[in-house]
Computed example of a mutant assay.
Amino acid sequence: MSAFRPLRPGSRSRVKATRALFIAHGAERTPEGRSLRLLREWLSPMQREQFVRKGYFEAIGSASGKPYRVHLGRSANVCVLDEKGHPKEGLCFMPVGDLPIGDVMLAQKIALETDENEVNEVARKFTTSTFHFRTA
C-alpha cells in the first residue's frame, strides 16, 4: 500500500499556488524560510521571477555557457537544457551536510555559475526520461 495518493482534479492549481506562496514568502522564522529568503536575494530579477512563477530558475554554466535549470529540491533537481530549452540530462550534486533547501539550491547556483567543470566532475548524471522535471 502506498502512502501517496493521486491528486484530485483541480487540486494541482492549489498545489501550484501553495508552492508559489511558500517560495515567495516562506515561513521566515524557520531555517527553510530563511534559506529561501537568502536564495531569493542572490537570484537575478529574471531568476527570481522564474522561481516564484515556475518553481525553478535557470543558471548559465561558467565554462561552457550552457543553460541549466535548478528545480526546487535538494538532490536530482538540476538539469542541462538543450537548445530548445528542454531538459536533456539530469545532474545530482549537492553540498555536504543537512542544509535547508534554499541553501542547497544557492550552493548549486553558485557552483554552476563559477565552477561548472568541477560540478560536471562530481555530479551523478541521469537521463531525464527516468525523472520527470517540471517544464512549466
Rank of each mutant, 00 (worst) to 15 (best):
M105C: 01
K84S: 13
D115A: 07
E89Q: 07
S75K: 03
Y68C: 12
G97T: 12
A59L: 08
G61D: 08
K109A: 05
D98E: 12
A20K: 09
R69W: 02
G61N: 04
V122Y: 05
F4Q: 06
I23D: 00
E83Y: 12
L7Q: 11
S64D: 11
D115C: 14
Q108V: 04
A20H: 03
H71F: 01
S64G: 06
V122T: 08
F133M: 03
H71N: 15
V52M: 06
L99G: 05
I60C: 11
A17I: 00
N117I: 11
R29E: 15
V104Q: 09
E121H: 08
L112K: 04
G33S: 09
P100F: 01
Y68G: 05
E28W: 09
I110V: 15
G102T: 03
R48I: 00
V15R: 15
A76W: 08
L43I: 04
G33M: 07
S75M: 13
L38I: 13
E116P: 04
R14E: 08
L112Y: 01
E41R: 12
C92V: 05
E83R: 15
T30R: 14
P100G: 00
G61H: 02
E89V: 14
T128A: 09
T128V: 15
A20N: 09
I23S: 01
L81G: 07
A136V: 14
L38A: 15
E121D: 02
H25D: 05
E116R: 05
M46I: 13
M105P: 01
S62E: 02
H132F: 09
L21V: 02
A111P: 00
V119L: 06
Q108A: 08
R69M: 10
H86R: 15
R34W: 08
E116K: 06
G26I: 02
G102L: 08
A107C: 04
Q47H: 11
G73Y: 12
G97C: 06
N120A: 09
L81Q: 12
A136C: 10
T30L: 14
G97M: 01
E89W: 05
S2M: 13
R40G: 00
L38D: 10
V80G: 02
T128E: 08
K16C: 04
G90C: 03
F57L: 03
D98Q: 12
R14I: 14
R5I: 11
D103G: 04
D115N: 15
I110A: 01
V96N: 09
Q50I: 01
P6Q: 04
K84C: 04
F93K: 02
P6Y: 13
F126D: 07
E121F: 08
H71P: 00
S64A: 02
F51P: 09
L99Y: 00
A63F: 10
K125M: 07
A17F: 07
S13C: 01
R19N: 11
G90R: 02
K88L: 15
Q50T: 06
N77W: 12
P87T: 05
S2F: 13
S75W: 11
M1C: 03
R134V: 10
E116N: 08
A59D: 07
A17G: 06
N117P: 07
T30I: 11
F133I: 02
A27V: 07
G97E: 00
A3S: 10
V52S: 13
I23H: 07
S62N: 11
F131P: 00
F131S: 05
H132W: 06
T135V: 15
W42H: 15
V104E: 07
P95L: 13
G26E: 01
N77Q: 09
I60F: 03
P31E: 14
K125T: 05
